[in-house]
């Protein structure tokens, strides 16, 4: 069995995979407790930090962050899908390419413009996150569409589909599973941006603002505890999106080797 675990492309059972994961988690904690620098709080300290955080209303802050991220993800996907699907029309390709290139812009300079345009509060937070995620999502979606081979389009043409219907059948429906994957990747970007954005707009709270406060007072146990909460919130979002993908696109995983 040990050999199989280290052999490339060897498919192992779920039981073996669970054992590998448990062993690695155990090793992680051993390294954390025994070998981590002294400045890093130990697991028990982090665990104890949850109590004061709970009393300070961290659950409410987490809810604010979660809803902000989901709203931002929703708008990001609507905007990105519209831009990407519309690249079927030549007229829309330059704008899509320009939006994709905006991923090289720094957000710091743009936040002022967003503040002047939108004001503050939830709208500003969502707008900044949507901008940050959209430029990457459009890049991924446009690349996905570009990778569709010509024979897929030809196949639909031979079945007498109109060009609009081809976009629906080949691009929209045919690639729905990949859209879910891109959505999962970009939801993670949202969580990464959240701390920064909630640091800028603190009026509504949110887990990012609490994180920055704890950072300011060098309360590392609480910082770690908050990071763990963000970690699990992110994993939860990813699980929900993965489950939705499984329901909406049951064909997608049928031929994968490592399911």
């Amino acid at each position: 069995m040990l050999r199989a675990v280290f052999t490339p492309n060897k498919v192992v059972s779920k039981k073996v995979m669970a054992m590998i994961a448990i062993t690695q988690i155990f090793a992680f904690f051993v390294i954390w407790i025994v070998m981590a620098p002294k400045i890093i709080p130990r697991p028990m300290e982090v665990l104890q930090a949850f109590g004061p955080l709970w009393k300070q209303g961290i659950a409410g802050h987490l809810w604010v962050s979660l809803t902000t991220n989901l709203i931002a993800l929703f708008f990001t996907m609507v905007i990105s899908l519209f831009i990407s699907y519309s690249t079927a029309i030549s007229f829309m390709r330059p704008p899509a390419a320009a939006i994709s290139k905006m991923r090289f812009l720094g957000l710091t300079g743009l936040t002022l413009i967003f503040t002047l345009l939108i004001g503050g509060g939830l709208g500003l937070k969502v707008a900044i996150i949507v901008f940050g995620m959209t430029v990457f999502t459009v890049t991924n979606l446009v690349a996905m569409i570009r990778m569709i081979p010509r024979e897929r389009y030809d196949h639909a043409r031979t079945l007498r589909y109109s060009e609009v219907r081809i976009v629906w059948e080949v691009v929209v429906r045919g690639k729905l599973d990949e859209v879910f994957e891109i959505m999962r990747q970009n939801a993670a970007i949202g969580w990464m941006m959240l701390a920064m954005v909630e640091g800028i707009v603190r009026s509504e709270g949110g887990i990012g603002s609490v994180l920055l406060t704890q950072n300011k007072y060098f309360n590392l146990s609480a910082v770690f505890a908050i990071q763990i909460m963000i970690f699990f919130a992110g994993i939860g979002t990813d699980w929900v999106l993965g489950t939705l993908k499984g329901v909406a696109c049951p064909w997608a995983s049928l031929k994968l080797e490592r399911r």
């Binding site: 024979e151 196949h155 043409r157 589909y161």
Partner: peptide
């Protein structure tokens, strides 16, 4: 024109969804 004659490409494309 496309659709009048049937075409079976080398990779047998189907709608996977």
């Amino acid at each position: 024109r496309a659709g009048i004659v049937g075409v079976v490409a080398q990779s047998y494309p189907l709608f996977m969804h």
